[in-house]
Amino acid sequence: MFNQFKTRAEGVSAEVHRFSTPAEALDFLVGFVRAEGVADQPGQYGVFADCPFLAAVDRQQLEAVAGMSFAVTREQAAGAKVGISQLDWALADTGTLVQDATAVDKRLVSTLPTIHVALIATSGLRADMPAWLAEIKPESANYIAMITGPSRTADIERVLTIGVHGPERLVIVFIDQLGGTH
């Protein structure tokens, strides 16, 4: 299922990575935000929505990066280069990520920044939408968000253009040993 997901997600311009432990993923994230120039200035902030991943790692490494914040405000998200959040499911047949995004910070970090980094436990993979629909209870999630690749438009002369209102890049990070939620 992972391979199918990767093919589909890359087919819609997402970037897909996979790590076996949260610690390895953390190393990747620290390197990534530094490489993207996250800093304590508007337009360059990094914002991280609270999630189980943060509880599973030593977040001090990320806190050490200037401009990273974990209590997300709208202003910070609007001025962020990178937004990071954890998603709940991944649908292999379309390369789609799904999240209970009831908490607004999860949406702020995945809509306003230029880059969205999406963390996902490999155990969250499902074959397709019907498989996921059979599991979900919308009663407990007032805002379910599905994300398939970065923001796109073809409204001018039908030319596909990436990054209109949402993120220009979607970086998906699978973590094998980030169990628990499913």
């Binding site: 819609v12 789609t96 908490a103 607004v104 805002y143 379910i144 599905m146 398939t148 949402g166």
Partner: peptide
């Protein structure tokens, strides 16, 4: 498209920022 970039399913009010 196999699926659009975004699908949002709203089932009640959510917290504002």
């Amino acid at each position: 498209q196999l699926l659009t970039s975004y699908v949002s399913i709203i089932s009640g009010p959510t917290p504002n920022s």
